[in-house]
Design a protein around this nucleic acid. Structure first.
Lengths: 234, 234
DNA sequence: GGATGGCTGTGACCTAGGTCAAATCGGGCA
DNA sequence: TGCCCGATTTGACCTAGGTCACAGCCATCC
């Protein structure tokens, strides 16, 4: 039994790539490059031709879009285990967003040809991407609907809830209160909600005045998480 | 050589289903039901379990979402040749939007089991859906970005441009002007843009006052289509 | 320590678009 | 023809969030 590299082990643990067998995995191993990205470094930019996909091994990557006037939107965050860039590859388009390391981390690059061959050889991999795309499509449509239907305070509460549920930066306390560490800056929160920095600041003040959540730098204390949901409903 | 039904011919001409062979097509034929929908009739509703996919043969279908307070958004229009409902089927979710006939037309229903079997047997079909999902995902992200970045007038001009390019209701004149027939009501345009009916009316007035486009019921005359693009850029 | 520069919070003010209520228009129909 | 009804337009008014300008804050680097 051949030794499996760290990377192979990581890939086989991912939700998308886990369907690959030993042979396929070693093929990925051969045709992929891993690289350490520094905070702020770009993986790819909007408009670039698609050369392959990016598998996030560690760190945190943000996917942004900006209009010609520079207004940025943050479309999503990619955590370790997530794969980026498969969408434009399969849709045969250029990158329609930019990806940038939000903190130092290792990202593994697999070139297009290899990905397409793998999907050919192992349809289940394509099916996994299909399922993921289907799910993300639903989320994207929901986001559009929300951005148009809900006010920003509600969307903010929703975002906090999601970040809490990701359980990636959460600590529950015995008294039912929850503490979370936001992975991103105020500007980036604003970019996710599609509003301005200042509006986020004002929302934070309102949340604190009404006792729903307390912010200190990137730490958030939510005495009663259920009240977040209530903010949602109102 | 067996006679091919009208439906088989239609399916084999569709962008998604064209990869199916004769055998597969006759399997679809056996496991599908076609039905005439009257204007306003629902194909499925948000929250319904997914029973299968819908292939639009004729007419026009609108995909909507509404929040608990009744604010509707129109996510997209499905024209003949489009397939609806594959997203939640593949993501294994309930319907996250409702679909409704905007005008009388025939829709062919294929049950989930058959679709999944077909994808299993003909991975190319799955790949087609994957490509479509990938493309729609990109569009949805663009829409979110636009809804947050661009003002409604710009989005309206954009929508007119898209409807013109769909060439489904367009007539170009020798002098370079274009005439198009909007397939939907003002309320529905508003729902696509994520604004209120009244705001669309006001935008129409502005467009007419600035000579960019003239509206009469659902007919639109655009003397100089290039000026629409300019409206976009401003 | 002090200077520099990126974040963040605040206040004053403004505008796009929402809300509400009242016309107006067009078509179908008795 | 006159009436009714839904779709559309219009006007008056209001509010969420954008804009601009400036002031803390914190970390880093001399």
């Amino acid at each position: 039994m051949p030794a499996r590299s760290e990377r192979e082990i990581q890939l086989s643990a991912s939700e998308d790539w886990c369907v690959l067998n030993e042979v396929d995995l070693s093929q990925v191993e051969q045709h992929s490059v891993e690289r350490l990205y520094q905070t702020g470094e770009a993986l790819f930019r909007e408009g670039d031709a698609v050369k392959g996909v990016y598998y996030v091994q560690s760190g945190l990557v943000g996917v942004r879009k900006a209009d010609p006037y520079g207004n940025p939107t943050l479309l999503k965050l990619a955590w370790p285990g997530d794969t980026l860039g498969y969408r434009p590859l399969l849709a045969n388009q250029c990158h329609r967003a930019s990806a940038e390391a939000f903190r130092k981390g290792v990202v593994c690059f697999v070139d297009s040809k290899t990905v397409l061959q793998l999907i050919e050889a192992t349809p289940a991999l394509g099916l996994n991407f299909l399922k993921r795309a289907a799910k993300e499509l639903g989320d994207a449509e929901q986001r559009f609907h929300d951005s148009v239907t809900l006010d920003m305070r509600t969307r903010f509460a929703h975002l906090l809830l999601v970040m809490q549920q990701q359980q990636k930066y959460v600590r529950g306390d015995s008294d039912g209160s929850a503490e979370l560490l936001l992975p991103i800056s105020r500007s980036d929160i604003a970019a996710m909600l599609g509003v301005r920095r200042e509006t986020v600041s004002r929302a934070i003040r309102v949340l604190e005045e009404s006792g729903v959540a307390y912010f200190s730098q990137r730490q958030v204390l939510v005495p009663d998480p259920a009240s977040l949901t209530k903010t949602l409903i109102r």
